[in-house]
Design a protein around this nucleic acid. Structure first.
Lengths: 211, 211, 211, 211
DNA sequence: CATGAATGAGATTTCATTCAT
DNA sequence: CATGAATGAAATCTCATTCAT
């Protein structure tokens, strides 16, 4: 039945449309101060409609993380496709990937933070919570295996791929969250600034990983 | 007038008492979901009383950051007292200092993040905002000068003390915020876990900073 | 036009099907808390469809009463068919009839009460309101005339058939509404309990009606 | 501490004031259609204030029943004070008492009905639910014991005091609920009508109770 | 200073109803 | 006819803030 599928697709598109609108609102107002009405207005829908797609405001917020984690995982899978890299190259590739993800959605880290901050977590439906946790795990695992596969055939470098992964991730996370100047005049400047400092950080780090 | 001073001191003590209570509440509920009544109950005061010491909920939240930044600065000043350290030792000392600050107030980074996240910033009184910005700058400056003074007499290492400071800070910030597992069974376990990964991170980093 | 009639019949059948579903929902949720969507789900129809058969939720509710009043009237007409009964027998027959009606639809009294309770009445369409009032009157009249015809040929007993009717009706109504234990384990037990106390009540009453 | 007691009293008075306002609103609009705002306006308070005294709308509604059941119990206790009555007199006294209760609050029965109708019951706090159930039981017990004490010394009459109690109560309940004409021009007329039919009912009933 | 009852604006959420398909 | 997504008004309830005591 083509008709059922089309409906399905449209429904999913509408969901995405709402998420996009929500993201725009959150960027300006922050999660706490944004209202469902704001989001509805931005999405050019009525408040009630949001509830056809998301059980509650908290679930809507959390769903943003799903979207972005999915993108992150895809990016990590791409990385894993590239074989025959040494650790140095890998760190470089990871940096590039993370900066891409950030550019795709600069809100991602604030989002993940919000999610982790126990603010909302408690009243999410178990299903959604499980989904998010699974995605976050998968993302981390993919990153880790990226380092694992590459490093086995080398000189004993990078013996703790999991920790390296976590540290690099945290470093990026920290640079984004801390550096984020709310009053930045321009997203472009902001991105440049970030790229510069991240590059420096990964550079230093990369030297440190080598024995 | 001793009497005036005593009043002053008592007033300040009461302020601190409220901040302590607020911190306890925020740990559990998050900034957004905590109510003034929650805080008042925790402080064993009435809601109205809070407004004798803080202009608004947002100012109260922001004041928590002041408290912690002050402690951070003190800690950094101590560091600066210790002369004749090479970069390696400095990084080690900084790590220790940051872990101490974290132990003093594990909430500090969520706090600072909340402050940066534009959620509330916009409606803070300019005075408070200025104070916080000044404190944050001072803290960063102290950290930077810690690296500067140390490194001049050395081998050209650490030519970008400001960036190193920012990166180390962000790395720590990231490790704390990301690693923070809301459902951690025990603060002590949590602390140990953090210390371990932070040590590893600073270790790698320290190797990278050396030429 | 047989085709028109068939359409008509089918339409009426669909109406009944909706009413049956509505009744099931109301039993569990009560009139106020039940939603049109609940009813639509129960009837395996879409919410929109309900409005093809009923002007509004209130009209749907009210229509339930119509259904049951019609059954009540039919039952009363049967009673009137049985001639040559003395008051004692009549009271017994009435009891039986009422218990039958109750078994046919245990919700009937809550229904009628809801209708009387001014909750909705005010916004019903005049036509429906008139219909219901007419039916209620007819039902009462039939009951009354049941006593009238019987008692004329007797010994001056039962000189106020109208009042007797009303009292018996109210007594039954009260026993049902009051006794109705929402948490009753079982409709069957419930029915037995009701029959027992109703029998006792009519027994006493019957002795009292005789001079 | 007189001051604490005074506060206590004032708080209780305010609660009563809200209940009185709620009653007035419910008489006009019915439980389902009345809004918290309606009640707040009637009580000349703000909507938020209602929630300082009642956890939810449902709890407010249910609390009306508490008030009235308490009055009912008091009235029943008075009855029990009067010794040396035969059953006939007792029935007469009970009738008078019930009519008094009705006059004190004509809404009582609709209230109790609402409470029983499962509409709200499910989401009441267990404490309130227990309190109401206990009160309803007490009321019934007092009525029953009124018949018991009196009848022991008599001629074997009234061997089922519990059932008699229940039947009389239900009869009254039914007469009130059914008779209640929402469009009654005047409460006074209404009361007279009720008194007349109730008297007739109890008269008949009383003859029936005697062997 | 401290209180805490009251406020009332505003947030989330629900749901009867409509209408394009 | 039937659908069910969308609506949007309205309801419930929350909570930062105020103010009379």
């Amino acid at each position: 039945m083509g008709i059922k599928e089309r409906k399905e697709r449209e429904k999913e598109r509408r969901r995405q449309q709402i998420l996009v609108a929500a993201k725009r609102v959150f960027v300006n107002k922050g999660f706490g101060k944004a209202t469902m009405e704001d989001i509805a207005n931005e999405a050019e829908l009525s408040p009630g409609t949001l509830y056809l797609y998301f059980k509650s405001k908290d679930e809507l917020c959390a769903s943003l993380s799903v979207r972005i984690l999915e993108y992150l995982i895809i990016r990590m899978e791409h990385l894993n496709g590239e074989k025959m890299l040494d650790t140095k190259q890998k760190i470089f590739q990871l940096k590039k990937a993370l900066l891409d993800v950030y550019e795709f959605d600069p809100l991602i880290f604030r989002n993940l933070f919000y999610l982790k901050s126990s603010e909302a977590v408690q009243q999410l439906s178990p299903e959604l919570l499980d989904e998010i946790n699974a995605l976050a795990c998968t993302a981390m695992d993919k990153m880790t295996s990226f380092f694992e596969t590459g490093t086995r055939k080398e000189t004993g470098v990078c013996r703790h791929p999991r920790e390296i992964t976590e540290i690099l991730w945290a470093m990026f996370y920290g640079l984004v969250l801390w550096g984020k100047d709310t009053n930045a005049p321009d997203q472009k400047d902001e991105n440049e600034r970030l790229e510069k400092i991240v590059s420096r950080a990964f550079e230093i780090f990369e030297r440190g990983v080598y024995v």
